[in-house]
Structure formats: C-alpha cells, structure tokens
Amino acid sequence: MGQITLNKVRKAFGEAEVIPGIDLQINHGEFVVFVGPSGCGKSTLLRLIAGLEDISSGQIVIDGKEASNAPPGERGLAMVFQSYALYPHMSVRKNIAFPLKMAGMPPAEQDRRVEDAARILNLSNYLDRRPGQLSGGQRQRVAIGRAIVREPAAFLFDEPLSNLDAALRVTMRHEITELHQKLKTTMIYVTHDQVEAMTMADKIVVLHAGRIEQVGSPLELYNAPANIFVAGFIGSPRMNFITGPEAAKHGAHTIGIRPEHLEIAAEGGWQGRVHLAEHLGSDTFLKVDSPELGELTVRVSGERGLNPGDTLRLTPRPDRIYRFSEDGRSMT
C-alpha cells in the first residue's frame, strides 16, 4: 500500500509561515511530482511527509494510520536525497543493507535483498566498493537501492537528478520511470524542472509560495492551466502573456499563447521583427519584437531560415488562446 493523505498541513519556521495549509490526497501506486520555483515549499512539504520536519498543525495519514508525529523511520517511507547522502565509510553492500540492519533483519535475508536490489539496479559488480569510488549515476543508483530494499509504502525523491550532467539526467529519468512501472509503488518526486515533471508524473502538484496552485495530469496542466502561474510555469519555452487592448478583444484581462501555438502567416496577424533566433535543428525558437504587443517567443518546427533583423507576421491558433481574469484565474 502507499496512500498518503495531508489534511490542512501547515508549517511555520518561527514567524515565517512556509506552508499555510495544504490538503492533498496521494493514491496507491501514483507517481506524484511536486514542482515549483525555488522557495515554493516543495522540499519542505516532502520533508514534512518524511518526518524530517515536524508539522506545525494539521494531519498526515499514511495507509490509514495517523503519522503526523511518528519518527521518520517508522513511517514506512524511503527517501532519495539530492546529494545521495550515502554513508561514505561503508561499502555499497553495507549502504544498501543499512535500513535492513536497523530493522534487525537476519543477515542472510539482508544479503538476499541486497543482491536482488543490486541486480535490478546493475550494481552487482560494485557491491564491495565505497561510494567515493563510484560515478555520480552509480551513487544515485546506490541511493535508490538503499530505498528499495526496505520495500517501503512510498518513495520520496528530493531533486535526485540535479547533481547529474544533462545526458545522465535523461538516462536516470528513464530508469526511475521504469522502476516505478516495475515496482508499482507510490512515488513522490520533488523537482524544479518542469520537463522532469511532465515526463515522469501521473499527477503533478504545482506549488507556489507554499500553496497548491493546481493538481492534475501533465496534459491537464498543459491544456487547461487553472491560472497564470501554472500557465507560465508549465511548458517550455514559457507561454506569452499579452495584456491591454488585444486581450480586451477576447474579453479578458490577459491572454496567453504558447510559443508553439503562434504561426507565421503570409498576411494579417501581428507584425514583428526577429531579434534573437535559437536554432536547435528540430525546432527554432524566435524572440520577436512586436510594436503592439512587446516581446513574443515563437517556436517553429525545423529550419525556416529566419535570422535577427528579419520581419514576419504572426497569428495565434484561435482554439489555443488562454484567457485570464484580472486576478490571474483562467476564464475557460
């Protein structure tokens, strides 16, 4: 099992209220990603669930049991830290076996579980090495191994890939997703990287200033953001926001158009001049100055031979215009 319920969970450090009160339901087997800009409280929320921080008020229920004040080791959760947090003086084998040893498991059973975990994570040849003798990706796998041997109710990941280089990050992302498919255990994953959030999650929780802005599947958040914050945070490059008369034409305070929903037109639409072109091969990102609307980001597929100084005309796909009211809420 691995069902986690947060009821009005609040956290304050002295005077500073970091999380004003969160209600959230995480179902068994779900891959939930907490995403948000730095300082939004996503790591604090994870640490509250883990028990590494005490909640100021509210209730945390894990698998039907009140766990608000249970020590971290008794919540049945395993955590993978950003810095891996391996025990540097122990071999890989001892690192992975540590939680089992703490649980008082017989050594033979410990060995069996460590070998199993090592096989799943391709670590069998490294069991007698120290963490210092491993590469970043291998260390991350040891940290995951230490988490899976316990057969926890849920895994907690605290930005586990941010210390890896770009290529390895993609590989590990796939490995964690596959691990989730294999184990079918609840996973809660904290990241500031919305690509990780979009690609891995069953359910994304967007946090901002300690509050939940929206909960939904990746495509729900992409297609139907609840407010300007979510609209701007999900999607890369960022959504263009336009206020003033152009927005008023659509009966909104602000309208938002994603860069991939702007099309280059022969005539009509908005005129603009390219001032930056990023050629990725598969796509081209253009920064376009429009006299009426300010700067717009445009994503066009392939190469269009556009360079700084060129002028063009842009039209938004009419079914893809997001409308927001003055307080930032979605009007659709």
Partner: peptide
C-alpha cells in the same frame, strides 16, 4: 552533511545508532 544523518533517520536508525554507526565513523 546533515543529509547523511537524515538518511540514517529515514533508514530507521535511533538517535543512539545514528551517532554510533554513522556520525562517529565519519568523524573518526
């Protein structure tokens, strides 16, 4: 790094075990 001690706490180590098995060997 305090994360290592937190990892020990997550792994179910009591305060005494955390000091005995993790902190002390690292601080040798």
């Amino acid at each position: 790094p305090s994360e290592i001690l937190e990892a020990a706490r997550m792994d179910g180590a009591s305060l005494g075990k955390e000091i005995l098995y993790v902190l002390t060997p690292m601080a040798v």
